[in-house]
């Protein structure tokens, strides 16, 4: 394990989110916690489990995939809580993909009922 792989910060703090989806996934967990869907300990456990699973599957886990694990933990936890089903998630994902493809650039992507 060499220094470069540790990805040491050279100076200040940099952006805390690399892409908008990371910030959105982050906020969803906070919102659901505030709503009382899970305790913060439950959340930390789910996240730790997801990180261990990803490491087991070969993720070098350099910190850059952190919010992917965050999102996966969130998806699993809401399903475990019976709030959202896997089918709902899959169907909705496909619906967003169709909507994104059929929307001209520069216009907001809207999901039609």
């Amino acid at each position: 394990m060499d220094v470069d792989r540790l990805n040491l910060p050279s100076d200040g703090d940099g952006p805390v989110f690399k892409e908008p989806w990371e910030a959105e996934a982050f906020a969803l967990a906070l919102g659901l916690h505030e709503r009382g869907l899970f305790t913060w300990t439950e959340w930390a456990d789910a996240l730790a489990e997801e990180i261990a699973r990803a490491q087991g599957a070969g993720d070098p886990d350099q910190g850059d995939t952190y919010y992917q694990h965050w999102l996966a933990a969130l998806e699993r936890l809401v399903q475990a809580k019976g709030v959202v089903s896997e089918t709902e998630l899959t169907e909705r994902r496909d619906a967003w993909e169709r909507a994104a493809h059929s929307t001209p650039h520069g216009q907001p992507v809207i999901l039609k009922p």
Binding site: L71, V78, V84, E88, T90, W96
Partner: peptide
């Protein structure tokens, strides 16, 4: 043709359902 990343699609799906 907007191409959203897989992760963006998953977050959008979860967020809109919630």
């Amino acid at each position: 043709d907007n191409h959203w990343s897989e992760l963006t699609l998953r977050v959008k799906a979860l967020e809109s359902l919630l």
